[in-house]
């Protein structure tokens, strides 16, 4: 990605196609997951990322291989954008041994240390202090990597959010606090959970450099996160970025959505980041309608492959139930 003077990303046609592919892969993967849930192939809690794709895809573009990522239970999008194998994610959600966490974690606990993806945390805000600690370790080790921590606006009401912001600023550690403000914490709207609803005001109170961006606009997210990451790499200090976004689907598969009007959801669907980005690419003549179809086809095949991989996976033997409680090499 080249940058113009204004830091505005200028993408090539090839990059445009790659980005569209990533967003579509997440969208279709999530839709397929919902389907597999109704077939009872996936169980437990399933939180889908539909509508928020531009955030995961946009932010991960500014990250390097050596950067660390931590996320929530709504993390399929972050994992896919990071390059986790769709088959391994699907197998994880099927509970199979071939899953990225050997089937032990399920949808909410995707881990892949090979690509520096540290989960998959299902306790709201539970990963923020750890993100600060990982960034602290980088600092102590003289590493130049950034820790990127995704969380929702609901999490920003927890004490751990405030403790983490303070610690990160106090210790000057290279962490990106990436708040995905989708306006609802489960069924409780922002206005019922935050006295100050402009969340970006919370950063300066801790002396943290802060920005906010329209999370439905991929290019804008890329620009804002690149700016944030550049700042962190240059100064070694934390940054707080609030992305305004919206989830199109229910909080989880158990949610009757009593707390919001259908019309509101429909209104937000007009901001759908995927058609918006496709239109941009079409307008800039970086892609043709046929090429979009080709990408759709490719995504479909990737997802079919992922399902097949998950279906063909194996169930772990019950006799191994107590594995991974303690480090095995220490106990044998």
């Amino acid at each position: 990605m080249k940058k113009t003077a204004s830091n505005k990303p200028k993408i090539s046609a090839e990059e445009g196609k790659r980005l569209l592919h990533q967003m579509l892969l997440i969208r279709r993967f999530e839709e397929k997951s919902a389907e597999e849930y109704t077939k009872s192939k996936i169980r437990g809690f399933l939180h889908l990322y539909v509508g928020e794709e531009a955030v995961a895809v946009g932010v991960t573009q500014s990250l390097k291989e050596e950067d660390y990522i931590l996320s929530t239970y709504r993390e399929h999008g972050h994992a896919l954008a990071r390059g986790m194998d769709p088959g391994e994610i699907m197998a994880e959600m099927f509970g199979k041994l071939e899953g990225c966490s050997m089937g032990r974690g399920g949808s909410m606990h995707l881990f892949d240390s090979k690509i520096n993806f540290f989960g998959g945390n299902a306790i709201v805000c539970g990963h923020l202090p750890m993100a600060v600690g990982m960034a602290l370790a980088s600092k102590k080790q003289g590493k130049k990597n950034v820790t990127c921590c995704f969380f929702g606006e609901g999490a920003a009401a927890e004490g751990e959010f405030h403790e983490s912001m303070n610690l990160a600023a106090l210790w000057n550690v290279p962490v990106l606090f990436l708040c995905e403000n989708n306006l609802y914490a489960m069924g409780t709207a922002l206005k019922y959970t935050h006295s100050e609803q402009k969340l970006e005001k919370k950063g300066p109170a801790y002396g943290i450099e802060t920005g906010s961006v329209n999370g439905m606009d991929l290019m804008a997210v890329m620009e804002a996160s690149q700016k944030a990451v550049d700042y962190i790499r240059k100064t070694g200090k934390p940054y707080f970025l609030v992305c305004y976004t919206y989830r199109f689907r229910a909080h989880s598969m158990f949610d009757a959505e009593l707390y919001r009007e259908k019309a509101e959801v429909e209104k937000w669907k007009k901001e759908d980041p995927i058609p918006k980005f496709s239109e941009y690419l079409l307008k800039e003549k970086m892609i043709s309608a046929e090429e979009i179809q080709e990408i759709e086809g490719k995504v479909e095949r990737e997802i079919e492959k992922a399902i097949e991989f998950a279906e063909n996976g194996t169930w772990e033997d019950v006799k191994d139930l107590t594995r991974f409680v303690y480090t095995e090499s220490q106990r044998s």
């Binding site: 509970g95 032990r104 399920g106 169930w315 772990e316 019950v318 139930l321 107590t322 409680v325």
Partner: peptide, 16 residues
């Protein structure tokens, strides 16, 4: 309960 963090797959959860 078996002394293990409860695993996700049904057959392992049941065994826990």
């Amino acid at each position: 309960g078996v002394e293990v963090p409860i695993p996700y797959p049904k057959h392992l959860e049941d065994a826990s």
